[in-house]
Design a protein around this nucleic acid. Structure first.
Lengths: 138, 138
DNA sequence: TGTAAAGTCTACTAATTCTATAGGATAATA
DNA sequence: TATTATCCTATAGAATTAGTAGACTTTACA
């Protein structure tokens, strides 16, 4: 399941990517437009700023803005920041690998083998999809 | 993330599928072989019995056994029983559809569009993979 | 016929994660 | 200096996960 955090994060980013103007957009505007709790969105945008996707400006006229072009922001990167590993089990994760405590030998684990397939497929989509690709013009 | 429940369930099923013999296997054997808490595994096997994948026999010499051939049990079916929807958001689920409360119009939601792709890819794998396919002979 | 072995069923619990909320600090602008 | 907006820390309620506990039922077999 995709967490609300990631869902909201992606929505906020595409909201910003959809705009032609480059001026900062206050959280309140994004929250209202996308039906997201403003306080919750605050923390989400903050972590995306820290991750280098967003810039921010304080005070009047301030808000958040994209630091890169929308075709330079991969869904995979956003997903990893907000949601964590793309893999369904840690033992097949490329960026967050962990050994399963119940599994003595990955090479003979059928779940492992299966989940590698799923990871590869999902990864392919997330790595090859940028914000630009998921924008829907109204 | 795949829950331990589903992971254990799949492991238990493949454990049974790997055996040539048809005699019931007690929970304790499966739990020990696969390093799973026996009590936890109990409830998992029970729900798979109720779902029609497993048969059981009580008393001495009892245990669980597969009711179908391993090539007739799709990962997708097992996954839906133990984990729930394959889709990452309810609004793109085929079997567990729910409208998102924050989203007024799915047709213009970029997350929706993206998650349909992921669902289709994962579904393809899970629908076309049976227990037989993921067995690893030692 | 008694006993041990096995599944069945209900209820409970500890820990973790998720989804926020509260409130003040800091910074920019007019 | 008042206003607007982000920044930051702490906290809290709800839900989910991953088990545990214990009594009950059924079966095989000595």
């Amino acid at each position: 399941m995709l967490s609300r955090k990631t869902k909201y994060g992606l929505k906020a980013l595409t909201f910003l990517a959809k705009r032609e103007e480059e001026e900062p957009v206050p959280i309140s505007i994004i929250a209202e437009s996308e039906n997201i709790s403003q306080k919750f969105l605050e923390s989400i945008l903050l972590s995306m700023r820290k991750a280098g996707f967003l810039g921010s400006k304080k005070g009047k006229g301030g808000g958040y803005y994209l630091l890169k072009n929308s075709n330079e922001i991969k869904v995979a990167e956003v997903y990893r920041i907000l949601e964590g590993p793309i893999a369904m089990v840690p033992c097949v994760s490329l960026n967050f690998y962990e050994k399963c405590d119940d599994c003595p030998d990955e090479s003979i684990c059928s779940v492992h083998k299966l989940m590698i397939q799923v990871r590869d497929n999902t990864l392919k989509i997330f790595e090859n999809t940028t914000l630009e690709d998921i924008i829907i013009k109204e």
